[in-house]
Design a protein around this nucleic acid. Sequence first.
RNA 1: GGAGAGUUGGCUGAGCGGUCAAAAGCAGCAGACUGUAAAUCUGCCGGGCCACGCCCUACGGAGGUUCGAAUCCUCCACUCUCCA
Length: 383
Amino acid sequence: MSRIQFKLLHTDGAARRGEITTPHGTIQTPVFMPVGTMASVKSLTTEQLGRLGPEDEKTGDRGPQIILNNTYHLMLRPGVELLEKLGGVHRFMGWNRAVLSDSGGFQVFSLSAIRKIREEGVEFRSHIDGSLHFLSPETSVSIQTRMGVDIAMAFDECPAYGLSHDEVEKSMLLTHRWARRSLDARTGASALFGIVQGGVFPDLRKRSVEEISSMDFDGVAIGGVSVGEPNEAMRDVVGFTAPLLPSDRPRYLMGVGTPADLVNGVAAGLDMFDCVMPTRNARNGTLFTSSGKVSIKNAKYAADDGPLDPECPCVTCTTVSRAYLRHLFVNGEIAASVYNTIHNVSFYLDLMRTIRQAIASNSFGAFRERFLSKIAGGEKDGN
RNA sequence: GGAGAGUUGGCUGAGCGGUCAAAAGCAGCAGACUGUAAAUCUGCCGGGCCACGCCCUACGGAGGUUCGAAUCCUCCACUCUCCA
């Protein structure tokens, strides 16, 4: 019945090397999924996206193995009816690899000004035209399935950071009931992942893992993280929760993170990651390199004729200089976003490939240590 | 030659007796960004200092009126518009 299959290939400490088979290709894990909210990884054409990152060791394929789309945004525009009629998101955007969709649960959190939460579901007012919409476990899963995604996410509630134990518990229990209903709404056309909540409270996280793991999800995700909590808190939650997750299914850390977060996440035993950071930061002029972050708009790069990252084989690093990238950025040229996004996404994909190789050769621990100190050398905050 | 308008910090441009080191925007400099309402947002932006306060230099130039002037008066310089 499940449309995906997970195979655990190898472990190196807690780090896992695996494979997820989907109708749109096999995904090597640990994997990073670029975010393409509007069925588009911002500033890239589907074709450009498809050529990013390192070449696959075996198949010779390039590019992300899987990307993320967003239910909330796509249901508003262009709408699920149209998407379905046009053959689903893959066909719509000309993407033939895997797609995972977020359920809209996060928007319940991030767009809190326009929501009304009930047991049944969430009433939204569209941020686009103010029209009224309703999202529930059933409608969310249905929309995701009709969009034709490979992996759908259960509809959850993502509590804001700073709520009390009782409030988070209440929210978590709602997420659990919604998880059950999401699962009951699954038709089998898309795989379905459950989402663990519980905020920053270990006892709640533990309960949530137990509850979500007991259900027949195709994978389990850690949600409710990177919602404004201190970095330390996030790391604690991930470090505590990840090892509790079932080992026979993909483990997905939602919305995280920095390169260092990814390395640490893998070390905690996680397989899948997504984050807007590489794409958003690219558009805002912050680039990730092998020696730390580079704010390309800084005056010091005005006459810097060298490549952004000498160690990076991406199109950006092999064709233009830092000086040119800065010039494009300060002048607001669209190409700045394109070049920057190409690099940042490539950097992330490259990092994941390196991580996979390190695990395969049982050298992940050493790699992690080297990586973190190298990054820290270039950046004080370790990102 | 006559009539009128104007000259403000790198630029555009408010202010029209004190609360003005001078609004706002731009440019410049730096920072943030973690399941994307983000090609966004925030801070700094005359100089100096033993800096939550003080000093210096500043609103075309020079004088003047006033307790006090970017703001009022006089002259000078320059710019623009209209009429000859």
